[in-house]
Design a protein around this nucleic acid. Structure first.
Length: 461
RNA sequence: UCCCCAAUAGCUCAGUCGGUAGAGCGGGUGGCUGUUAACCACCAUGUCCCUGGUUCGAGUCCGGGUUGGGGAGCCA
């Protein structure tokens, strides 16, 4: 006997005349008196396998009534297809209906809107687009690990439950076992001393601070895991639960950090071009016509570097009207970032050395006394895709910044310890995995690149 | 959280000047066909998002709400 063959293997690796067992879900049925055609997909690739069924099959009548979405098993012979449209087809000797689907199956053999498909999040992976999205997502996740593994980076699992809110990067989701109906109070506030962890805890907004500790032991490390923000953000680019990649390098400065980010992004572009060809071609055709050209350009280009101060000069000279003011010391808005990367540079660009007052407490102060060693990577069409910095390794300066920005020392005593013994220059960055996916697939809504998106008011499935 | 837009058949949508509902796809039936999200004919299918108002009359105009989408802020 022989085992089950996946559709991609049947189409690529099999020889005509070979007897195969294929299992999958019916996408289309074309019924005739003399012959019926089924297209079977099992998720292994975009393409379906054409199954040819002759009326001599004992259950031919049942096969003709098969609905889109049915699960079937087909034993048959692979042969070259006499008709155009596919190279190979499977001539069925036996067809088992494993799980039928009736006409109430919500997915039809036609185009559906992404909005509608979000209402059937549990079924949308069976569509062409989401099949492609989640194959690319999986492949890209593995490429992330390969990139860092090849460079000797340690993969560290930073905690999901945490008692510190990092830089105040975002609102924390509370984690508690206290009785929500009547929480214990002390001086008018919730008393967490009786809670599971005997203190207020939440879901992590970043693994960076813990990552820095590991970098100061293993030199080069990265995290890649879920991150949570309880922000009431209602946009196509924000989710309450998303995955973030955060490398951290010891004995590295801002330029080394930027170099790593550039290598990383180009590696991932190269990866999807080389390994996800069929799915990328689909995105280029159906989702975003300029996608392949853009991804190839990034894979082959070297990224520009521009000082924040220089960016402000460009923006002040800009002929286009901006909705938000441009002034040295103010943060750049989306419209400004896109102007710089699209109009001024025309490609990926690192903006570096931002005013210290608009950046986080842990970023290293530059000698000018005004700026910090921060960098943002801006790319056309998206804007900021990577944010990073060299960290402040000098204890006195770090304490000074914490005091200025109102960060509580006591909760971060362990972080400060890393600056007490063996402190060293180090730098890292953060990359939102979903935003990377949006960039590499052309998908325009973050809800459509996460298997089961969590956004304000939405945690179903 | 703020601004803008939308909601009509299972899905995608049209619906003119306010006069009581349409197409394509999907479904059913029949035909045809080595077919390609097949094709041809016929048939069935509506809480026009909810609510209040204006009007002789509201899918259509106005107010309130709900849901969805786009943009902004926050950020990754």
């Amino acid at each position: 006997m022989y085992g089950r063959t996946r559709v991609d293997a049947a189409l690529k690796a099999s020889r005509p005349g070979e007897e195969l067992l294929v299992k999958g879900w019916v996408r289309t049925v074309r019924v005739g008196k003399e012959v019926t055609f089924l297209s079977v997909n099992d998720g292994s690739c975009m393409a379906g396998l054409q199954v040819v069924v002759e009326p001599t099959l004992p259950n031919y009548q049942d096969v003709c009534r098969l609905g889109t979405g049915s699960a079937i098993a087909v034993r048959g012979t692979l042969r070259e297809s006499p008709a155009a449209g596919q190279k190979y087809e499977l001539a069925a000797d036996e067809l088992e209906i494993i799980g039928p689907a009736d006409d109430s199956y919500p997915l039809q053999k036609k185009r559906h809107s992404f909005e509608y498909l979000r209402t059937i999040t549990h079924l949308r992976p069976r569509t062409n687009t989401f099949g492609a999205v989640f194959r690319v997502r999986s492949s890209l996740a593995q490429a992330v690990h390969r990139f860092f593994a090849e460079r000797g980076f340690l993969y560290v699992h930073t905690p999901i439950i945490t008692a510190n809110d990092c830089e105040g990067a975002g609102e924390l989701f509370r984690v508690t076992t206290l009785d929500m109906a009547k929480p214990p109070l002390a001086a008018g506030e919730v008393d967490y001393s009786g809670d599971f962890f005997a203190q207020a805890t939440g879901l992590t907004v970043s693994g960076q601070l813990e990552g820095e500790l590991f970098a100061q032991a293993f030199s080069d490390i990265y995290t890649f895991g879920p991150t949570f923000r309880a922000e009431n953000s209602n946009t196509a680019r924000h989710a309450a639960e998303f995955w973030m990649i955060e490398p951290e390098m010891a004995f590295a400065d801002l330029m080394a950090d930027a170099a790593l980010a550039e290598d990383f992004l180009r590696f991932l572009c190269r990866h999807v071009l080389d390994n996800c060809g069929e799915d990328m071609a689909f995105f280029n055709e159906q989702i975003d016509k300029g996608l392949l050209e853009r991804v190839r350009a990034v894979a082959d280009s070297s990224f520009a570097v521009m000082e924040y101060t220089e960016a402000i000069t460009h923006l002040k000279k800009a002929k286009v009207p901006f909705a938000f003011p441009v002034e040295w010391g103010l943060d750049l808005q989306s419209e400004h970032e896109r102007y710089i990367t699209e109009k001024v540079v025309g490609g990926p660009v690192f903006l570096v050395n931002y005013p210290r007052d608009i950046k986080a407490f842990y970023m290293r102060q530059n000698d000018d006394g005004k700026t910090v060693a921060a960098m943002d990577l801006l790319v056309p069409k998206v804007g900021e895709i990577i944010g990073g910095s060299q960290r402040e390794e000098r204890l006195d300066l770090l304490l000074e910044r914490m005091a200025e920005t109102g960060i509580n020392e006591e909760g971060l005593w362990w972080y400060l310890d890393s600056r007490r013994w063996g402190s060293c220059p180090h730098a890292g960055f953060g990359l939102g995995f979903e935003r990377l996916l949006m960039y590499l697939t052309g998908m325009e809504n973050i809800r459509d690149v996460i298997p089961f998106p969590r956004t304000p008011r939405h945690a179903e499935f």
